[in-house]
Design a protein around this nucleic acid. Structure first.
Lengths: 207, 207
DNA sequence: ACATGTGAATAGGTTCACAGCT
DNA sequence: AGCTGTGAACCTATTCACATGT
């Protein structure tokens, strides 16, 4: 488990989802081919990926679903809950807050921020919308590890810098800004229009 | 432009965004290093990527911003508007409908569907929420090319099959279902919890 | 002089195929 | 017998370095 390739990391959550599905229907053991078919890849890929994490299977048998779930969750750092804040509480922020499957996977939304005075202080599920004025202090106080950034694009860089300054080291960036942040802050850009543009390319190509 | 690598395709929308930014601040020509810095990559990568599309630059000078925008948009099939439908009009579907930047980039939301009788017939921006009963017919009639799928996970496979049967060849899948569809239907999974899990891995790794 | 475009070198990932274990 | 784990082969993508063109 010296060095796990990036692409393998990207597939681990997929495997985890498949394994959870398998578990809920009562499957105790899967082999690499079954898992591959569920995950939409091939058996060799599955074995190679899992081999980076250690020798997790049993030759002649396959992988124990329960054990594998635990192991992957452990590698992904999902054994403990992660504390997440949403910064920018518009429609998208609200939708993400309600997104079943974040909480399910151990991501606790512990705060939501907005700079609109009309929103500050109002209820957001079980939380209250907090002001951006106290962003740094609140992020530190609440020990936030990951921020979901859904502000308007034009303030994103500035807000992201404040978030980084507050010691947050992971940002899921839904804005169109290309964030330029210090080394050590991991940004995951999620540009929904990029995904559509890629689909558009394949449409243009195949027609 | 025989065969453009997948990874290059994934970067083209990024370049496009950077070039649009450059244009709005009045920059007429960029070189590969400048574009690389904006896009968060390196100059060699930029030149290689763009070389797949043809000889678009001028040696000794750089790339004409306007011309390059047109060329990339053309390759991505963005010169004409793309007709998009949202299937599953909950919080997330609603947020995506309002997402500025889809329309900006030529993605027209032409229909939204839901199976909740309380929602059907209500206004959704300038549209009216349509019933799932007429999904296939409506998708065909409206000539929908791309579907954004935001139904509950447990109906996703079934609905996706209907969408594919209606001739739609590109699906942006926001559900947790691992869709199994015929060859020729391009699915782009967008699993927001996967992104968070990947971030979680890097947090676990670096601390 | 300067920046592109591209073959060559390198790195990174995937697939193959089989040895090794149960 | 059956399935994992893994070196080797293969393929894809990135980086280098320089010839090429303006």
């Amino acid at each position: 488990m010296d060095h796990v390739p990036d692409q393998t990391i990207n597939r681990l959550p997929i495997y985890l989802r498949c394994l959870n599905q398998a578990r809920t229907v009562g499957i105790a053991v899967v082999n690499s081919l079954q898992l591959a078919q569920m995950a939409g890849t091939n058996a060799a890929q599955v074995r190679k990926d899992l081999s980076y994490l250690g020798e997790l299977g049993t030759r002649g048998i396959g992988y124990d679903v329960e054990a594998l779930i635990h192991h992957i969750a452990d590698v992904l750092g999902l054994t403990e809950k992660r504390r997440v804040a949403i910064v920018g509480y518009g429609r998208l922020g609200g939708a993400l807050h309600g997104y079943r499957g974040l909480a399910d996977r151990g991501f606790d939304i512990v705060a939501v921020f907005d700079d609109d005075p009309a929103k500050i202080g109002t209820k957001a599920g079980e939380l209250t919308v907090a002001s951006m004025d106290t962003l740094e202090r609140d992020l530190r106080d609440l020990d936030v590890e990951i921020v979901i950034l859904t502000t308007p694009t034009y303030v994103a860089q500035e807000v992201a810098e404040r978030i980084a300054a507050a010691g947050v080291r992971a940002i899921m960036n839904f804005t169109y800004a290309l964030l330029d942040l210090p080394e050590g802050v991991k940004v995951r850009p999620v540009d929904l229009s990029v995904e559509l543009q890629v689909l558009s390319f394949y449409l243009a190509r195949s027609s």
